[in-house]
Design a protein around this nucleic acid. Structure first.
Length: 893
RNA sequence: GGGCGCUUAGCUCAGUUGGUUAGAGCGUCUCGUUUACACCGAGAAGGUCAGGGGUUCGAGUCCCUUAGCGCCCA
């Protein structure tokens, strides 16, 4: 006999042990492996590449979310029999990691990366990575992630670096990569260029500065307004609308740049809005994207006035060396002195800020590398439009289209050290050499005097290759051949552009196929009132703390069931708590089942199914069917909810309660135990992808209980672990199901109505009371179920009679009417005739309103136009209400 | 400026080919230590499904519109 199981599920002593068991058992690895003997290339695998977390990161709820969803997808497919592969790994995360290491160096050794030098700094960063890089993967394991850890990859490891190199060289050779001075977003804090996506716009209070642009040799001026006066230093024109009556006379004349005294032209361009500001626009092509476009159109010179720290450079005259904001102040003061100032006013505008550093980003002219994105974007658009890739939920397809249709070239160079260095070498002649192997001489002139480009690639360039680079690309490895393209891409919608779109573009470009066929996007997690979690608010929920306190299953179940695809979810610890209770419920239902198995004596024949047995089976079949449908439609939350309801309400609250009686009876004990064991087993299977730990643990106990019991046959049909147990398949309905369900539901209604009355009349739960039932056509059914009704409703079975009709209505009793069934509870001394009358009248009124409603319905067009089956259903209902009403009326006489 | 999402019980949310009296968890109230579980059980209260209009035999669900909140893109 197995030892007594504790009353409460102890996740603390369970989770790590179960995880180790899974890993040791090799269950995380695909059963069909192209690198192993017996491999069958014709079996379709199911593959997900993990969204690689930052190697220096620490687990947050976003990770918990994607691990929960992806692990669910993986476990489900594994149980369905697919060879499943979930490829784990981490991202070097250029900016984030470099910043972290820099800050640490500054704090501990008081050195900057510049002082250390590139080589030494990289050495330190690798050391950092080795030291801390496994924290995140350890934490991901705690969530139960069933990844194939032997296939773990890192975006900067040798293989992936080779993939990056190959990808870059291919694009270069195709002419899709170019280098040149362009207006880019410059992050002065990070001292690097960033892509458009890495700039966030926030609406903030600013000041609009109005001033005079004096005309050359004249006292006339054009009033101009700007948010950034310091950019005046870089102005190369003043533009007005050609139709503007106020200013069009000035077109072609010359204006004088304040303080600097430079002469610039006044031009006409329809881009200028006559309504905005003063109706005239200063043109600073070196520091504004719109001005840059106008400058191109009018062949204006471009002047850059800021250096890499956003200090004014030599083009700023006397302001050279000042910080941009300091320069703004001084210049404005000087202009005030020169009587060029008109006024200032508060103004609300959008300010571009660096996603990473938070400081204001400056548009700047800079020499950078770009991917000519249009051809790639076109292919990526096609792949979703023609259905090769499906995005769930669908509405994100529109967003995806919109982005790709308006996409601009991708700035891929970063002025960082931590990352993949751009594989281009220059000779003194300025020739570029871009090769797969490091060159020793210039590919054009043969000069040995070559040096490599200093910049590294945008982190997302390497993550864009992730689904295939992790499988060995560019080599045609067995893994790549078998597992690529992958199946689902699951991630948060916030990186649809950053990552998903780029993977699709890269996948199509380099491998010729879409890297996955389905994109599933989950929402972001907010606090319980929908606020963003942030350290300053103090509303951050740490998944590690939650797991420590309430268990991994509880957290997973909360994330999976509380959310719908693509929608943000509000998380509260309360929800996790109630799901901790659910895990405990699973555990205890299991303890009950196991106890029944342990006390089963050998030799007995399984008897017939009772009504409850048939009912729970039929309900389980419905559940299996529903869950399957929901999984196909990515309705995981709905599926989880239904399993929860089945286990808690149908199985625990009803079936187990009935089973307690059936286990007392030798005639039904055996079959009841079988039903308990099998239904519970199936339920655990359905639940396993949601709450893997508690289900695996209790299933293990169930299995060993079966092994040592007369139900050994059931044990033999089980595999050695739930993680690899077969996913339940719905059976063909056999025809009896609906009737058994209806019959049992009648029992439930009778029981509920008796319980209700008892509660109303304050009958002590321990007190067994008498009852007599007039059951009409249901007399046989109720007689068969009399024990069930008696025990669930607290009736004294000896004082409980069921007849098809009663000659006399029992005196001094309360009457209940359930459909055509009348129930009399003789509650001597407790029945107050007046209140009984009120109660029955209330019920009659309710039945009457239903009758009214249904009669109206059936007399209308509904009867002609609705499906006949539905009409019949409503007719039956009407008849039932009529019958109920009749019975109540009889009571009231 | 363009697009998208949300608005359902006190709180947080489910509700996907339109079809019972709109559900759950938490919270509230009443009762209960019935040997699986008090991390529990039984019962109860609580909703004009944001407002308006339309399509339909039938609308929380589809269409139009208004408002509030949130997000994305420019």
């Amino acid at each position: 006999m197995t030892k007594e199981l504790p009353k409460a599920y102890d996740f603390k002593s369970t989770e790590s042990r179960i995880y180790a068991m899974w890993e040791a058992g090799g269950y995380f690895k695909p059963w069909n492996d192209p690198n192993k003997p017996g491999f069958d290339p014709n079996v379709e695998p199911f593959v997900i590449s993990i969204p690689p977390p930052n190697v220096t990161g620490e687990l947050h709820l976003g990770h918990a979310m994607f691990v929960s969803v992806e692990d669910l997808m993986i476990r489900y497919h594994r149980m369905k029999g697919y060879p499943t592969l979930w490829v784990p790994g981490t991202d070097h995360a250029g900016i984030a990691t470099q910043l972290m290491v820099e800050q640490n160096l500054l704090r501990t050794e008081e050195v900057t990366r510049e002082e250390l030098g590139r080589e030494e700094f990289l050495k330190r960063t690798w050391e950092w990575k080795k030291k801390y890089g496994s924290i995140i993967t350890t934490q991901i394991r705690r969530l139960g992630a069933s990844c194939d850890w032997d296939r773990e990859r890192f975006t900067l490891d040798d293989g992936l670096s080779r993939a990056v190199r190959e990808a870059f060289v291919r694009l270069f050779e195709k002419g899709l990569i170019y280098r040149g001075p362009r207006l880019i977003n410059w992050s002065p804090g990070l001292k690097t260029a960033v892509s458009d996506l890495e700039v966030e716009y926030s609406e903030e209070d600013a000041t609009l500065y109005y001033f005079k642009y004096m005309l050359k040799d004249s006292n006339n001026f054009i009033p101009v307004a700007t948010i950034r006066p310091e950019t005046i230093l870089g102005d190369t024109a003043v533009a007005v609308h050609p139709e503007d009556e106020r200013f069009k006379k000035f077109i072609g004349k010359t204006a004088i740049v304040p303080v600097l005294g430079r002469e610039i032209p006044i031009i006409g361009d329809e881009y200028v809005s006559m309504e905005f500001g003063t109706g005239a626009l200063k043109i600073t092509p070196g520091h504004d994207p719109n001005d840059y476009a106008i400058a191109h159109k009018h062949n204006l010179p471009i002047i850059s006035i800021l250096d890499e720290e956003a200090k004014v450079n030599e083009n700023g005259g006397k302001y050279h060396g000042l910080d941009r904001f300091e320069a703004r102040k001084q210049l404005w003061a000087d202009m005030n002195e020169a009587r060029l100032v008109i006024k200032t006013e508060p103004y609300r505008t959008t300010i571009p800020r660096s996603q990473r550093g938070g400081e204001i980003v400056e548009p700047m002219i800079s020499e950078q590398w770009f991917v000519q994105i249009e051809p790639l974007a076109k292919a990526a658009l096609e792949a979703v439009k023609d259905g090769r890739i499906k995005i769930v939920p669908e509405r994100f397809e529109k967003i995806y289209f919109n982005w790709l249709e308006n996409i601009k070239d991708w700035c891929i160079s970063r002025q960082l050290w931590w990352g993949h260095r751009i594989p281009v070498w220059y000779c003194p002649e300025g020739h570029m050499t871009c090769t797969r192997e490091d060159p020793t001489q210039c590919g054009t002139c043969g000069s040995k005097d070559i040096h490599q480009d200093e910049d590294v690639l945008d982190t997302w360039f390497s993550s864009g290759l992730w689904p295939f680079s992790t499988l060995g690309w560019p080599d045609e490895t067995p893994d790549l051949k078998y597992f690529y393209p992958t199946s689902y891409m699951e991630t948060g919608y916030d990186i649809l552009f950053f990552w998903v779109a780029r993977m699709i573009m890269s996948g199509l470009e380099y491998t010729g196929v879409a890297p996955f066929h389905t994109v599933y996007l989950h929402g972001l997690i907010r606090d319980e009132h929908g606020r963003k979690m942030s350290k300053t608010y103090g509303n951050v929920i740490d998944p590690l703390v939650v797991m420590d306190e309430l268990g991994t299953d509880a957290l997973r179940f909360t994330l999976l069931v509380g959310a719908t695809p693509g929608n943000d979810m509000n998380l509260s610890v309360k929800k996790v708590e109630s799901n901790r209770n659910f895990a405990n419920k699973v555990w205890n239902a299991g303890r009950f089942v196991i106890n029944a198995i342990n006390t089963l004596q050998p030799g007995a024949e399984p008897g017939d199914y009772t009504l409850a047995d048939s009912w729970i089976w039929a309900r389980l079949q419905n559940l299996i069917r529903d869950v399957e449908r929901q999984f196909q439609n990515f309705q995981y939350g709905q599926a989880g909810q239904q399993i929860y309801d089945f286990l808690w309400s149908d199985f625990a609250d009803w079936y187990v309660e009935v089973a307690k009686g059936q286990l007392q009876d030798d005639a039904t004990k055996h079959q009841t135990t079988i039903t308990l064991a099998r239904v519970f087993d199936m339920t655990l299977r359905l639940l396993h992808p949601f709450t893997p730990f508690v289900t695996e643990e209790i299933w293990g106990h169930l299995r060993s209980a079966l092994r040592d019991s007369p139900l050994h046959d059931l044990h033999k049909s089980q595999p050695e672990a739930l993680i690899v147990a077969r996913w339940p398949t719905p059976r063909q309905a056999e025809g009896w199901e609906a009737e058994k369900i209806a019959d049992f539901e009648l029992i439930q209604e009778i029981v509920r109505s008796i319980r209700n009355l008892r509660a109303e009349k304050n009958v002590a739960p321990s007190r067994k009371i008498a009852a007599s039932i007039s059951a009409g056509a249901k007399a046989n059914l109720l007689n068969e179920q009399s024990k069930v009704i008696a025990s669930l409703a607290g009736l004294d079975h000896k004082l409980f009679t069921i007849n098809s009709s009663l000659k006399d209505k029992p005196a001094d009793s309360a009457a209940l009417v359930v459909g055509s069934v009348e129930i009399y509870l003789p509650l001597a001394g407790m029945v107050d005739l007046a209140s009984e009358k009120t109660r029955l009248e209330k019920e009659l009124k309710e039945a009457g309103s239903h009758i009214q409603r249904l009669e109206n319905l059936l007399n209308g067009d509904f009867a002609q136009k609705a499906p006949p089956a539905l009409v019949q259903k409503e007719r039956d209902k009407l008849n039932a209400y009529k019958e109920t009403a009749e019975k109540i009326k009889a009571q009231l006489k």
